[in-house]
Nucleic acid binder design. Sequence first.
RNA 1: GUGGGCGUAGUGUAGUGGAUAGCACAGAAACCUGUGGAGUUUCUAGGGGGAGUUCGAAUCUCCUCGCCCACCCCA
Length: 428
Amino acid sequence: MQKKNKFQSLPGMHDILPDDQVYFQKVCKSVESIANFYTFKRIETPLLEDADIYYKGTGEDTEIVEKQMYTFRTKGGDHVALRPEWTPSIVRSYIEHGMQSLPQPVKLWYYGPCFRYERPQAGRYRQFHQFGFEVIGEAKPAIDCQIIQMSHDVLKEMRFKNLIIEVNSIGDSECRPYFKKNLMNYLRSKRSSLCPDCQRRLKQNPLRILDCKEEKCQRIKAGAPQIIDHLCESCHSHFKQVLEFLDESEIPYNLNPYLVRGLDYYTKTVFEIFENTPQGKEQGALMGGGRYDNLVKILGGRNTPACGAAGGVERIMSLLKNKETKPDTSKDAKVFLAQLGNLSKKKSLKILEEFRRAKITVAETLSKDSLKAQFRTANKLGVRYVLIFGQREALNDEIIVRDMDKGSQEVFKLDAVVAEVKKKLKNL
RNA sequence: GUGGGCGUAGUGUAGUGGAUAGCACAGAAACCUGUGGAGUUUCUAGGGGGAGUUCGAAUCUCCUCGCCCACCCCA
């Protein structure tokens, strides 16, 4: 709620609070482990890019560029944009750093924030995180399959069960224009029965009509020519092979002839992955991607084929939260240091440091004086052992270790305590 | 951009025109510098903002702001 004199995060912006970090990091770790396995290297690119790479790369007529980009002019007059997606940045980097002279293909992965100015909604933010994989410099259909497989793997790694993979081919610069004409002719003949949005799309991006959910458009599209029937020879055989690879890898997929993607640079294979649950369907695609054989050239590089996929971190997180699996709490402290008196308080810092070196997390509230209060805190933290270090112990260089579950206590010499606690933790 | 729902302490909520706006959790303090989960007591903190109707508004009306959801599109 909006309060007087109180700041608030901007619409569509959100904090990922400590409690959610478990999920946030789980996504990152899953992505990283899959990427490492397939020998992808991480890349990081600036949030801010020359806006032109999106106008040219992502495409002027796309929803993203047309209405959703955060753009502004710098003091020096440069027209820049907060990245709405990663791929053009990565391709820019590939070209800029001469990665075409590396062994091909170059395999990269990423994880970081993106910005799109649109109406926030379930699983949709203005600042959100995407991760993804890109393979640049390889045209073979096996790569398309590998990208799909990795995407599938990442989600499976996070224990997603009911996944739907939808696949289609949207042809290339050879066959798509021809198909477009064909489709236009068909659609023009039905123009008056299309929904108003689609009548508008007819001019701008007729392929998207195939994606429309309006009932009357659905009926029209049922009779529309399908792109897979109009693929040129090379696209056709490419797609056929991709499907064969998918079959061979036993990756479950649905052919969806109406799947078109919102970005201009896609060619041939496109795919999206959803979770097959009510919430999953509402939220939209968890991951999506495809081949983009023209993008490198469009952005000024050599003619280089490429293929990639991207995933939405927040979307995945929100579904992850509904899963039964409890977040991993193994990193929480299992030991608490309670001190009493000035001398012990002073010596406590050194003790803590010794535990840190032994890589044992020890919680404390040095700010508190009363033992009772410290125990209360220890208890709330759900700690197993409390180290009691009072005046008496400080003088004798001893320390008491209390087992909170059993209620038993043992006294140790100060220089032995780290080893003893380590032993105890190991036996848990 | 269009449509729907909702705004009460930090969080979750009660209260349908009338009393000091109630409860739970969280937080702080005391009992209590030598041993936790409990208790008691005390404290902190609230109707998004504005206008109107009314003797009287958290409650009704309007505006505005914000949040959520849907369309659109997508990760």
